[in-house]
């Protein structure tokens, strides 16, 4: 957990790590506008991704996050949550 506010670039790079290393998704699939549904992760797999983000930035995603459609949406929501924590 970092003390300074994470930038969107840092969040993106953290997410890229999670997707490539823990979920074995190839990096060329990870463009920001890529819909999450095309990433070949089931709903439980995505729960694990959310858990890793929450743990990293000490934030809590809302219970329902169906409005997150693309990778960029995840980055934006994470960034908003990090900012609102300050």
């Amino acid at each position: 957990m970092s003390n300074k506010i994470a930038t969107k670039d840092e969040i993106k790079s953290f997410l890229t790590d999670i997707f490539t290393k823990e979920k074995n998704i190839s990096i060329d699939k990870l463009s920001p506008d890529r819909p999450l549904k095309e990433l070949d992760i089931d709903s439980f797999g995505f729960l694990e991704v959310i858990f890793s983000i929450e743990h990293q930035y000490n934030i809590s995603f809302p219970k329902n996050y169906e409005h997150l459609v693309t990778i960029q949406d995840v980055i934006d929501v994470t960034h908003d949550l990090v900012l609102s924590k300050q």
Binding site: F44, L47, E48, I50, F51, E54, H55, S60
Partner: peptide, 8 residues
């Protein structure tokens, strides 16, 4: 002192 558990 964490406040969340692993999803599984």
């Amino acid at each position: 002192g964490e406040n969340r558990l692993k999803p599984y």
